[in-house]
């Protein structure tokens, strides 16, 4: 069972306290109505599936409840870093 560092609690906690929330750094368009069908499709459905470094969101659901971002290696399943929502991509 992986240990995940919650950047809000500033503690490593067991993964059963967390829920994955999909790929990180995908912002909801500020004005969805101005989006073309293709742009909206890309926002809704198109996701990366990298081998290696992957930016993803996690929520400390059974802890502080905060969403945060993480860089995880999809091969080794190791977390490289975690950081607060809103901070720049690492």
């Amino acid at each position: 069972m992986i240990l995940i560092h919650c950047p809000y609690c500033d503690e490593k906690r067991p993964e059963i306290e967390f829920v994955n929330a999909g790929q990180a750094h995908i912002s909801r368009p500020l004005d969805p109505s101005s989006q073309t069908d293709e742009e909206w499709e890309a926002y809704l459905f198109i996701r990366a599936n990298p081998r290696g470094r992957h930016h993803e969101r996690w929520r400390h659901t059974y802890g502080c409840g905060r969403f945060f971002n993480a860089v995880r290696d999809t091969v080794s399943d190791k977390f490289e870093t975690t950081y607060k929502a809103g901070e720049p991509r690492r």
């Binding site: 829920v19 912002s27 909801r28 929520r59 905060r66 969403f67 929502a85 809103g86």
Partner: peptide, 13 residues
């Protein structure tokens, strides 16, 4: 609740 927290925390903080 999770969905609402998601929008509140990450889209409309």
């Amino acid at each position: 609740l999770n969905m609402m927290e998601d929008y509140l925390q990450t889209e409309w903080p």
